[in-house]
Design a protein around this nucleic acid. Structure first.
Lengths: 109, 109
DNA sequence: GTATCATATGAACGATTGCTCATATGTTCA
DNA sequence: TGAACATATGAGCAATCGTTCATATGATAC
């Protein structure tokens, strides 16, 4: 007979956040899980930047960057403002920086 | 003529971590970017747990959990110890908790 | 109006990913 | 040794993802 952990699981289950929240959490980290998006966020670390400057910096297509910025914006990780033809992107809040910083620490320790 | 940002990029490029580190950072977050793995890490938040208990808790196959634990272990996010037939897994360090906590904050604010 | 620059977007394609299934490894107990 | 339990692993498949390409939208200047 396989061993039983009904009692243990009852307690842990009670402490777990809802499936929906855990799903959202996974979706958030999925966005950090791509080198291009990480580079974009690092590029915006100090100051806002326009799309074509980011594309130049990363040596990538304007289209590719634009697609990724859309993903980042949908997750409220970046914000944008328009100035004439140009659109400037910036990090949305401090969480972005601290999440990256924590990951950085884990890797470089 | 498209506008020029050579001067700006020179400064930002100097401040960016190496491509290799940014790749590693993306790879790390990719691991957090899956609901199953997030659930596993949450399950281990308070205490160690054996593979079959985790499988029971998440209502998933032992095989599926085992595969994911391998991924988590390869990234130094969990550690394990054997006790007889059973293998207990636990979180490897505090970074795991703080990364999750930062993500949680971003979502629930 | 037209031309040009800056950005956004939709479709398509190749690559990666997470699960399932079958099976292998490792441990305990009789 | 053999049977039962706990875990690990390899192959295969469906689904997801990131890029490219072509094209659309939007703004400015003439």
């Amino acid at each position: 007979m396989p061993h039983d952990h009904a009692e243990l699981l009852k307690h842990i289950k009670a402490d777990m956040p809802s499936d929906e929240l855990l799903q959202d959490l996974g979706d958030l980290f999925k966005i950090f899980g791509d080198t291009t998006r990480i580079k974009i966020m690092y590029a915006l670390y100090e100051d806002e930047m326009c799309v074509c400057a980011i594309a130049d910096l990363l040596g990538m297509t304007q289209s590719a960057i634009s697609h990724q910025l859309k993903v980042l914006k949908a997750a409220n990780l970046v914000e944008s403002r328009r100035d004439g033809k140009t659109i400037y992107y910036r990090l949305a809040d401090e969480h972005v920086k601290s999440i990256i910083a924590q990951g950085y620490e884990h890797i470089t320790e």
